[in-house]
Amino acid sequence: MRIERNHLLVYILTFGVFGILNTEMGVIGILPLIADHFHVSISTAGLIVSLFALAVAISGPILPSLFSGMNRKKVMLLVLGIFIAGNLVSAITSDFTVLLIARVVPAFFHPVYCSMAFTVAAASVNKDEASKAVAKVFIGVSAGMVLGVPVSNMIATATSLAYAMLFFAAINTVAFIATLLFVPSMPVTNKPSYGTQLRVLRKSTIWLSIAAVIFMNGAVFGVYSYLAEYLKTVTNYTWNTISLMLFLYGAANIVGNMLAGKLLKNHALRTIKFYPFALGAVYILLFILGQFSVPMAFIILVWGVLGGIGGNITQYWIVSAAPEAPEFANGVFLTSANLGTTIGASVCGLFISGISTQYVVLGGILFLIFSIAAMYPRLSITADCRYLNNAK
């Protein structure tokens, strides 16, 4: 029975993460509608995405640590309640400033729920199964990114902008009810002190891990951010085919999450060592064969799988450097990942504006080189390697 309850807990956490990522990413699909509805420019409407990400990056190392001593069930209910309220306000407001506030306030609590979900999932199973449990939660991240954009667009187009916002609220409400009814009370008995959590920042391994995650996320999302543009201008796909390819990438991403748990459980070091080279090979093929429609579909499939594996690797890489403070480490991971996405998209955008869209992959390869430069020194640290070998 305990095993069944633990599986149910992981599924609820996965759905909760899906709801939060759905709220974060889903608005991308309705930005033009938001701009029209609130009579603002598309760049101004984009603030509801960029400020959300900024709030996550700021709160990542702070709020998860502050909430780490509270009953985890109560914290999860609090965060989901805040997201429900934010989405309800977003659905009824006619003021763009109110919409921004209703988006940014919940964003500060995004790392609280997600870092806690990773920590609770890992703690709900034995040590050997921890990476697989975390990988299941990452499926919620991928599903939120994949389904949020097209579903919100479909709802808003068929009905209204308000109903799209209510859809976000409904998903969070289902997660809230499931947490309330089926998640047991989870008081924290051995909360690490704030000093213990902050002391992990003294370790060289954590800073090497942060750098590696920033560069790795920059490599993945810096190129992915311009995938639709690449498929349009280089591969010359139609918009319907581009939509299909984006779904293909997302579905492959979910498969990658499933594979990642097994890989990190059984071959952690080997997976981490070879991952940058595998992604680099995909980018080289993307550059060489990007103009050919059939090979491009296979490249996107493999790229999507590697993207899902990469998300798990980056989370594992930081948390394994600070196992004594998991909530704090997961918060640092979320901040690093968001910074990497922001920096990667900006730098890769420079390659597009400076040369052409086809050369966006050079930005990804550049970030991969930097990630290797940060990753391999950490692998050479004896104590850290011993920890990772024990995790294999």
Rank of each mutant, 00 (worst) to 15 (best):
M1N: 12
V10G: 03
I12A: 05
I12L: 02
L13W: 09
L13N: 05
T14V: 11
E24D: 08
V27N: 01
P32M: 06
I34M: 09
D36G: 12
F38P: 02
S41Y: 08
L47A: 11
I48R: 00
L51Y: 10
L54D: 00
V56Q: 01
A57F: 03
I58Q: 00
G60C: 04
P64I: 05
P64L: 05
M70P: 00
N71H: 02
L77Y: 04
F83S: 02
L88I: 15
I92D: 07
I92Y: 14
I92N: 03
T93F: 10
A102S: 12
R103P: 01
V104W: 07
P106T: 07
V112H: 01
Y113R: 04
C114K: 06
M116P: 07
T119F: 11
V120N: 09
A122P: 06
S124Y: 09
I139P: 04
V146L: 15
T159R: 12
A162T: 11
A164S: 14
A169D: 08
A170T: 11
I171G: 01
F176A: 07
L180R: 10
L181A: 13
S185M: 12
M186P: 03
V188H: 06
K191F: 08
P192Q: 08
S193V: 07
Y194I: 14
T196D: 15
L198D: 01
R199C: 05
L201H: 01
S204I: 15
T205C: 05
W207Y: 10
S209M: 03
I210L: 15
V220K: 02
L231N: 03
N236R: 14
W239S: 15
I242D: 08
Y249F: 15
N257H: 06
L263V: 03
A268F: 15
L269V: 13
R270F: 12
R270D: 09
P276R: 02
F277N: 06
Y283I: 05
I288G: 05
L289I: 08
G290F: 00
F298L: 13
I299Y: 12
V302I: 15
G311P: 04
I313P: 04
I313C: 08
I313L: 07
I318K: 02
V319A: 07
S320V: 02
A321D: 04
P323Q: 11
E327S: 10
N330T: 08
T335N: 09
A337H: 09
A345I: 13
G349A: 01
V360P: 00
L366C: 11
F367Q: 02
F370R: 06
S371E: 10
S371G: 07
I372E: 02
A373T: 14
A373K: 11
M375A: 11
T382G: 14
A383R: 13
D384C: 14
Y387M: 12
